[in-house]
Amino acid sequence: MSKIISVFVAIIAIAMITVLYTPIIPDFEVHRCPFCYGRDFCPNKQVSLRMSSFKDIINNLISVKNVYTTTNGLVLKKLGHTKDLNTMDFLICVFHRSHVMEPCEFQDVDLHRTNYTQALHYNMKTNHYNGFRVCGRNVDDSIDILIRRILKPDGGKDVMNVINLWVISIINGEPLFYKAFDAQHFSLPIYYGACGRLIAVEDCGQNLNEYEDYNWLSRARIARSIIGLALKFTSGDDDFRIYLTDVSPDNIVVNKTTLIAKFVDFGNILIVRKSNVSSVHHSDHYPNAVEHIYSEENVCQSSISDHNIYSICRFIISSSAPWPMMKGGLLHSIPIKISEENPQLEQLITNCVQPNEEMDSGDRFAAIFKLDNALKDILGMHPIDTSNLQLG
């Protein structure tokens, strides 16, 4: 029996060594074009998947979400599960053929008989296929503005480019978001482009839950950066408000050096045109919910919503954050000294989930500004010791 185990271990070891030292090149599926995501990032050199650790091997070889990390600082995304990609191909065939049971050969399609800009417009409005939706008052005008942003600089003259964007709108609108909004202003991952059925974005750091054991001041700095992003998505664009509908630690990464967080998944968002009509939407709080329960229609029809604030407070920062967030939320285990110096801190954290009528008049915007200012003051009084980030 021991010999069998030894042989098995040896086989596993050989397999691991082979994986570690043999470059694995992703399949970009360029042959699918023009019904792909584009060809503006087809690398002129080899792009290999990162296999430097057991975690890398598991993530890259058994990637349920079809998201891969590379050896040169890129994250490659197929934008959907395998079943989603198969559904996308079926929908492309249905769109172009009246007899859907016929074999679908993309090469046979007459690309000039279809108004793909109009089809892109329809998908962004109706959101039948994924979680990316433009909504609110004057939605058609809103989509026109976004499409003009997305199609710059050629203005939609390149038919192939418009087809690529239409295909993306079927599977996952994340690249549309990257093209429409400024990466530096919103602290987005750099979008490098697409090659076939993969997009390439910047690798921005480690998953938020990797910072569970970092000292409280480090986590406070991370929390402030997340608060800043939530407010910027809500109010930081001239024309639109951006509401995140899938806030979880899996979709937030942190730079290990700066402790600055970034959201890295924008496949599930609502984009709402700013309005002069005063209609503030307040998210309902469901204490026992493990997912964010919200009315999409109420968010879309408001002039402004506290949706982003509630999302990060309830599901990331506060002690009520459910799994898969770290136990106790991002600001767990407040040090005794800081708690004594700031006796209202725990209440401020709670208030951004469920505002206090006396302290905040039931307003989450007021609650989050108070919490952010409190964290700013604490970090000003207690500089972070960067040599001991992981010591509580």
Rank of each mutant, 00 (worst) to 15 (best):
R314H: 05
P324D: 00
N308P: 02
E291I: 14
P249W: 11
I271T: 10
A289T: 04
P287C: 14
I309Q: 03
S283I: 04
V253W: 01
Y243L: 09
F263T: 00
L259A: 07
V277W: 10
D250K: 12
H281T: 09
I309P: 06
T258E: 14
P249H: 03
I304D: 09
H282G: 00
V299C: 10
P322A: 04
T258M: 13
S319M: 07
P322S: 03
L229T: 02
S320P: 02
S235Y: 15
S311H: 02
H282A: 12
I317K: 05
N308G: 00
T234H: 03
I260E: 15
I317T: 06
M326R: 01
N288E: 13
A230K: 02
M325S: 05
G236D: 05
E297P: 01
S283Y: 03
V264L: 09
K274T: 06
I312E: 02
K262M: 14
T234Y: 02
H307W: 05
E291T: 14
I293S: 11
F240G: 08
P249S: 07
D246N: 10
F315K: 01
R273G: 13
L244Y: 07
T245M: 03
I260H: 15
F240W: 04
T257D: 15
H281V: 08
S235G: 11
V253Y: 00
P249Y: 07
N288Q: 06
I312C: 00
N288M: 13
S235L: 15
F233R: 00
Y243T: 04
N251F: 08
E291K: 05
K262V: 01
R314L: 01
V280A: 08
S303R: 03
M325Y: 01
A261V: 04
N298W: 09
H281C: 13
S279G: 01
H292E: 09
N268E: 10
C313V: 03
H281Y: 15
I293P: 07
V280C: 09
E291M: 07
D237E: 12
E297A: 11
V277G: 08
Y243N: 04
V280F: 12
I252L: 04
Y294F: 15
S283N: 09
H292V: 07
R241G: 15
S302T: 08
N255V: 11
